[in-house]
């Protein structure tokens, strides 16, 4: 009963949030929307991705994720991801300077087999993270080696392990702690996948999410 009740409540909240998002989105179509309207829409999107991330992680902990694997055109997938990404639309680092997000260069994967929505959720949080810590630019692409598919997100920021990184990356931000755990859960759900975070020569951080059997 307890479980059924919480499932019902969560379903209800998700629906209400969905509705709110659409209404705010439609509101923002009008000319001269006050800045509060724009902000409310942003907050709503942030709240949604936090809730979705949390629920996905919760499911992962409780019973494991069960990915719905389908055939995905990688170019289309990445384009959609960047197109719809909230953090890309904001396009600002935490210091407030503009950051652009690009697909490629590089990438040799045309088609993949994975759960589009789960991977999208994970990569959106990785993108969000990268944009926050980027200097000017974030790049995203996919590589395939045999049956292994790796998504890579690279920023040109200060890199991991520098300065007060632990504080930075662990602070109360919306996606960080949750974000990495989410990415890991999604990677694991696709075979024995994994994630990694490393510094790149010349500054910046490279995030990799590897999905086995997805290539």
């Amino acid at each position: 009963m307890q479980n059924a009740l919480s499932a019902l409540v969560i379903h209800d909240i998700k629906n209400a949030l969905a509705l709110l998002e659409i209404e705010l989105e439609q509101l923002n179509h009008h000319e001269g929307v006050p800045v509060e309207g724009q902000r409310a829409y942003r907050r709503c999107l942030e709240l949604k991705s936090r809730l979705m991330g949390f629920l996905t992680l919760y499911k992962h902990d409780q019973s494991g994720l069960n990915p719905m694997v389908s055939e995905v055109d990688i170019a289309e997938f990445l384009e959609d991801l960047v197109d719809a990404s909230q953090s890309v639309q904001m396009g600002r680092s935490r210091q407030g300077h503009p950051v652009s997000v690009k697909i490629g260069p590089g990438g040799n994967a045309n088609v993949g087999f994975f759960d589009q929505n789960l991977v999208e959720l994970a990569l959106e949080s990785a993108l969000n993270n990268a944009v926050r810590y980027a200097h000017r630019e974030v790049r995203i692409w996919a590589e395939r080696q045999g049956g292994v598919l790796t998504f890579k997100v690279c920023d040109d920021g200060i890199g991991v392990g520098m300065v007060d990184e632990t504080v930075q990356r662990g602070e109360k931000s919306s996606s960080t702690g949750l974000g990495l755990a989410l990415c890991e859960a999604v990677a694991k759900a696709h075979g024995s996948g994994s994630i990694s975070l490393e510094n790149v020569a010349g500054g910046g951080t490279l995030f990799c999410m590897t999905l086995h059997k997805a290539g």
Binding site: K14, N15, E21, K48, M68, D80, A84, N117
Partner: peptide, 14 residues
């Protein structure tokens, strides 16, 4: 399949 809520932009591209 689209996950709810689906932003208009995503709906459009799909």
């Amino acid at each position: 399949y689209l996950l709810k809520p689906c932003p208009e932009k995503k709906l459009r591209s799909r």
